[in-house]
Design a protein around this nucleic acid. Structure first.
Length: 574
RNA sequence: CGGGGCGUAGCGCAGCCUGGUUAGCGCGCAGCGUUCGGGACGCUGAGGUCGGAGGUUCAAAUCCUCUCGCCCCGACCA
């Protein structure tokens, strides 16, 4: 490809509001163009990268025994109502009506469609197991799209569904996919960390995410440096320290004028926040719920939502709390009735806590569970934090941020039961198909590669996904020998099947070097009067500082060798 | 949904508070010339419904109302 003809120009400046690296570089290279909030066009360079990622994914899916098919983006809303997931997705589901006033949805995922299809294509245990997948556009009306391609409303996703007869089969399918995913990231030159994840209210026993560790990641990961434990903070279970506060003492009322927050109360009474209990009020599917947790720990709403098995969970407003007859600032479970009370197990981690007295400006000292109050349920609803104990080895947990580049779920039979996807076992007994679901967002993967592989000059593409292998860069095109050599080499390389981006522009060396670095093509080949003096060209890898002069004689074969070696290095790393 | 901000040439921005010639600047773009191994320079030139609608005024990019879009933080997000 000649740069002079390439659709998509590099920019010198990018909008100030683009503040993640991948977003900036994608704009600066001219690879993407925003059409609406969270909706982008991919220009030719980006599209080539996306296609390469797609082919790597397809290859690994096929190797794992996957069958590719294609399901529509357009789906009847009815299908979603049958599983009830229209409510679970809520406003993230794009819906509209057709000319006959039938409700339609743009598919955010395809479990329903595949399960429905299974009803007519899977009837016997002999039909199982199955791994079927497609690479299709997904639509999700995200509350807040952001960071370029990292969170968008329309994106391409590879989603594979496993259909099995039983849990053992599901485990096998899951492990196959887990391995295939690791191969994909390795081939994309991306170190992806496997972390335990929350599978949501829909259930299923296991779920893992693949995370690329980077500052700009939206997800917080809790991990143990001593063992392999790593989990999304929505899932992570840290072991909380015990609070040493003596033997239970008699409960005692104290005045705490004007003290409403935990911080204020703790300071006023001169106790650490870990010696207090706090009350947090939520609305779970329009019902008030009272959460109790140790004062120094936060409630994790995902965990609470899962415990409550509710669809919508939000903090109650102060007005709603007051209206329910609760004394905000001095609320506690002591003596409260008529409200569902969920407690974090941290309330059992010590003794003699300070808690609200349900009386204005008053708290209790020496509150002890279960002596002084009852709750409906004690559960683990705390947000895990760095510094807590590792649940696997007891070591000290750390935290970091990451980009979710893949998510795999053991779904179980929830969807197949709702949609009537059953099969007959060898004994003639009917069972719901056991499902798993495995997704990778291609655009996000592309952005994650940039987040992980760049420097202050631009992108550094791993050769397996680079839009082109070679940046052919002649300097001083007005020199006929340079032009002739470059044109000949360009034809020869293309004839060899190498992917060449030919910088045929009459620009100064500085401009060309900067664009070459910005675009991040793995191998840069310079032809100039200087190199031609010794009948050679200069070869430089984007990822290394030094360049070398290589004789012009046999250069095409030499480059082909280099590209081949680079490619096989990545594919052998799986 | 709450908070903050922005919309002026292909891109990045100034002008707005305090209304007043022909709406500026840089980059990019076109032509000519001189340069050029890490984003050169000179000259000439093209390019604008100032997001949209309504209003105030002799006069609106500028003030007012409404509206649309976009960004950032948070909430939220299988």
């Amino acid at each position: 490809m000649r740069i002079s003809k390439l659709f998509g120009k590099t920019q010198r400046e990018v909008p100030a509001e683009a503040n993640t690296i991948s977003h900036q570089l994608l704009l600066k290279t001219g690879m993407i163009h925003q059409v609406a909030a969270g909706v982008y066009s991919y220009l030719p360079l980006a599209w080539r990268v996306l296609k390469k990622i797609e082919n790597i994914i397809r290859d690994e899916m096929d190797k794992a025994g996957g069958q590719e098919l294609m399901m529509p983006a357009l789906q009847p809303l009815e299908l979603w109502q049958e599983t009830g997931r229209d409510l679970a997705f809520g406003k993230s589901l794009f819906t509209f009506s057709d000319r006959r006033d039938r409700k339609l949805a743009l598919g955010p995922t395809h479990e329903e469609v595949i399960a429905k299809m299974a009803t007519s294509n899977v009837q016997s245990y002999r039909d199982l197991p199955l791994l079927v997948y497609h690479i299709q556009t997904k639509f999700r009306d995200e509350p807040r799209p952001r960071a370029g391609l990292l969170r968008v409303r329309e994106f391409t996703m590879k989603d594979l569904y496993s259909l099995d007869a039983d849990e053992e089969g599901l485990d096998q399918s899951y492990n196959k996919m887990l391995q295939a995913y690791q191969n994909i990231y390795a081939r994309c030159g991306l170190p992806a960390l496997l972390v335990e994840a929350d599978s949501g209210a829909i259930g299923g026993k296991d779920s893992h995410e693949f995370m690329v560790i980077t500052e700009s990641g939206e997800d917080e990961i809790i991990y143990c440096p001593d063992c392999k434990y790593a989990a999304n903070t929505d899932k992570a279970q840290g072991i909380k320290s015990k609070v040493e506060n003596g033997e239970p003492l008699p409960i005692e009322e104290v005045e705490t004028p004007g003290m409403a927050t935990i911080e204020q109360v703790a300071n006023f009474l001169r106790v650490p926040q870990s010696h207090t209990l706090k009350a947090v009020f939520y609305f779970a599917d329009r019902k008030l719920v009272f959460a109790v947790i140790r004062g120094d720990i936060e409630v994790n709403e995902v965990k609470l939502k899962n415990i409550l098995r509710c669809i919508e969970l939000r903090l109650a407003t102060e007005a709603e709390v007051v209206e329910a007859g609760i004394i905000a600032g001095s609320a506690s479970p002591i003596g409260i009735t008529g409200i569902k009370i969920i407690a974090d197990d941290s309330i059992t981690s010590g003794a003699n806590f300070v808690a609200g007295a349900n009386k204005p400006d008053t708290h209790f000292r020496n509150v002890n569970y279960p002596r002084d109050f009852r709750v409906d349920l004690v559960a683990k609803i705390a947000r895990a934090r760095a510094g807590e104990g590792c649940p696997k080895c007891g070591g000290k947990l750390s935290s970091t941020h990451g980009i979710e580049v893949g998510h795999i779920f053991k779904l179980g039979t929830f969807i197949s039961q709702k949609l009537g996807a059953f099969f007959i076992d060898p004994n003639g007994v009917s069972h719901p198909i056991v499902m798993g679901s495995y997704g990778i967002g291609l655009g996000r993967l592309l952005a994650a590669i940039i987040e992980h592989s760049h420097d202050d000059k631009g992108i550094i593409w791993p050769i397996s996904v680079a839009p082109y292998h070679i940046y052919l860069c002649p300097l001083y095109l007005e020199n006929p020998q340079v032009t002739a050599t470059a044109e000949n080499l360009y034809s020869e390389l293309e004839a060899q099947g190498l992917e060449v981006l030919f910088d045929d522009r009459e620009e100064s060396p500085g401009v060309k070097f900067n664009d070459a670095d910005l675009l991040g093509i793995p191998i840069r080949v310079i032809i100039s009067p200087r190199t031609l003096e010794t009948n050679s060209v200069e070869i430089k890898w984007r990822s290394v500082k030094e360049s070398e002069l290589v004789p012009l004689e046999g250069i095409a074969a030499r480059l082909k060798e280099l590209v081949g070696a680079g490619l096989s290095r990545l594919s052998n790393s799986v």
